[in-house]
Design a protein around this nucleic acid. Sequence first.
DNA 1: CTGTTAGCGCATTCAG
DNA 2: CTGAATGCGCTAACAG
Lengths: 341, 341
Amino acid sequence: MQHRQRLPEKKSKITLKEVARHAGVGESTVSRIMRKDGSVSEATRLKVMEAVRATGYVPNRIAGSLASLNSHLVGVVIPSLSNIVFPEVLQGIHAGLKQGDYQPVISTTEYDVDLEEDVVRGLLAWKPAAILIAGFDHTDATRRMLVQSDIRIVEMMDIDAVPIDIAVGMSHRRAGYVTGKHLVARGYRHFGYVGHDWNADRRAHLRYEGIVQALSDSGLAIEAHAIAEAPSSVGVGREMTARIRAEAPGLDVVIYSNDDMAVGGAFYCLGAGISMPDQLAIFGFNGLDIGRELPQPLSTIRSNRFLIGRTAVEKAFESRLRPPAPAVVDTGFEVFDGATA
Amino acid sequence: MQHRQRLPEKKSKITLKEVARHAGVGESTVSRIMRKDGSVSEATRLKVMEAVRATGYVPNRIAGSLASLNSHLVGVVIPSLSNIVFPEVLQGIHAGLKQGDYQPVISTTEYDVDLEEDVVRGLLAWKPAAILIAGFDHTDATRRMLVQSDIRIVEMMDIDAVPIDIAVGMSHRRAGYVTGKHLVARGYRHFGYVGHDWNADRRAHLRYEGIVQALSDSGLAIEAHAIAEAPSSVGVGREMTARIRAEAPGLDVVIYSNDDMAVGGAFYCLGAGISMPDQLAIFGFNGLDIGRELPQPLSTIRSNRFLIGRTAVEKAFESRLRPPAPAVVDTGFEVFDGATA
DNA sequence: CTGTTAGCGCATTCAG
DNA sequence: CTGAATGCGCTAACAG
């Protein structure tokens, strides 16, 4: 005769306690072993590991974090994933996190500071060990939350302002300045600028200011502008190049707000049979792979997004405490002397 | 005997209890209000919200998740962030998650199934509401963990195999087949194939098989191959194009493993003065933006990565229970009839 | 509509 | 070296 047996729970949740019972030891012993903490005899360790395997136990980090008040999460806030530079920063972050057992939790702001506020609030609720956030443009509320959380805050990409805690990036103003000086030194005199929406891209604007300053220091100025209200893209770069050529045929060089835009310019020239750099020189910013592989390598400034991400992580974990005064880490940049300028 | 004194907390952590005390109400009332759950009088709601603001209270989701056994996290596993298609999938996932208050937790496997196993184990420890994972290539252990977790598992990108729970993607084999048939119909007869590392890219191999099948059905075959052992990139595509041209000058069309590679091929042709498509036709796969913006738009197959990500989220949250039999959602693809083939 | 109470699963004292 | 007890901060019944 058969006993009515209770159907096994579809999910018989295996907890520390179960494993402990299974192995015939105390809960804290299992806990110690799972965390490789303290000293345990090899015999009981093996016994417990066997029980872990047999039960298929998966530790619950939620409970662990609550008990230890240490979440092992890192909040990451970036404007978007469409612009390739941010995934590159993420790669650096992943690389930096490889050793420890921290998990990045990523949110995007779509270049909207109010959305950023929500996103930061949401991230803070997970009590992350640190927050890595792109840029300095925050609402007051965001800044206050960040300041008051007593975790490490790394503002990435940019170092042209005073950070909350620490900034890791490069000076975009200086990159613009260097761009201007470099092109003047190469003999260009009639400058055009092709850009995208500045409201959403503070750093592009900083570079622009640097360019203007450099030209001004050489007694020059930008003679023509074509600025799209759209986000940067190859297509927009191409269109704006067509427009600026029509409006100011006498330019000898065009500086673009970034490489996406500049590649669009290069495509325009290739399609229209305008030879670079003699008929028109083109200069970008970022040093994207695609630019390097063009039939003529794009002249540009190489920033190091991967390094920014990795360094941000390193700095965030260097110490659990914020420095007495905001710190800055310059990851630098370099002129890439391609064939388009 | 010495006594270690605890340093005074820099920040007096504000908890639900604090807010409740501050507002002169019970804890559960505050909890309800924070979760917009149940009914609360407007008067007390305002009183509590005021206390929340005054104290700067940030709910602790770790504790909340533990108490409700519902983590509000979604695990995402992708091979890498370098290949632009995966950030695009992430965008779709972010878009799909917009409404609910779920946070994606992203891990990359670097195309390594053993690393994937670790990564999945780590993710499962966060008790996510669902796991969205790219591809079907898992170790047995990974598959077992995924099967036994009773959460929804969405395998993304690909539908050419039987999923654990549900698959969202397109048939890469069929895309290859359609590519082959399309090019045969356009009159091409001498086919070359330029590819990258197949071991890391199962889907590229499936497409290849589809191409071979289509050609075979038309009494044709691929006459020359140039397959790099590196991951796909524009640079590698360019090099392999040079190689295949040298080895098999008579080809009239080259099919590439993806758009990155094909763009490299287009750049090679542009640089070498080979006119597309008459001297050499080029066909890619993916439908990346960059291809569309080339001086001549790249002929390719458009897959919809964003849609895959968004659909994956939708399907994952459609029901908390897995369907009786594994399900498949085909997000489709279409031939983009550009100017290079 | 609101307060009280008992856990969620684990890390961490503190004893043994 | 190991085990028992005490919350971490919150949610979810259950009372009122």
